[in-house]
Simulated assay, not measured.
Amino acid sequence: MDFGYILTSTSGRIPRSQWWAGLAILIVIALILGVLVTYLLGGAMTVVGRIAMLILNIVLLYPAYALSAKRFQDRNKPGSLALIGIGLSLLQSLLTVFGLMGNPFNQNALDYIFGILLLIVGIWYLIELGILRGTVGSNTYGEDPLAGRA
Rank of each mutant, 00 (worst) to 15 (best):
A66Q: 08
R75M: 09
I113V: 15
L117Q: 09
N106A: 15
G34N: 04
E143Y: 04
D144E: 04
L67C: 01
R149D: 04
N57M: 06
G142H: 00
G102R: 02
P145G: 01
L110N: 03
T96V: 03
A52T: 08
V28Y: 04
T8M: 11
R71W: 03
L94Q: 01
L132F: 09
G134V: 09
G85W: 12
L81M: 11
I32C: 09
A44G: 12
V97R: 00
N76L: 00
I86K: 02
L23T: 11
L60Y: 07
T8K: 07
T135S: 11
G134W: 02
Y5L: 02
L88I: 06
F114D: 03
V97N: 05
L60G: 12
L7N: 07
T8L: 14
E143D: 15
S68N: 07
G148P: 11
V121H: 12
A69C: 12
V59A: 14
A82F: 06
A44M: 08
S93R: 01
F3H: 04
G134T: 11
Y39E: 15
I84H: 04
L132D: 09
R13S: 04
G4N: 14
N108A: 02
S11R: 13
I116S: 02
M45D: 14
L81E: 00
R16C: 07
S93M: 00
G148K: 14
Q107W: 03
T8W: 11
G137Q: 05
G4K: 13
A69Q: 06
Y65V: 09
I29D: 12
D111C: 12
P104T: 13
M53C: 06
L31Y: 12
Y141I: 06
E143F: 03
A147H: 09
I123G: 10
L41R: 07
S17C: 07
L60R: 15
G87I: 14
S9W: 02
L36Q: 12
T96W: 00
F3S: 13
E143M: 15
P15E: 13
M1R: 11
L36V: 15
G122T: 00
L146C: 05
P104R: 05
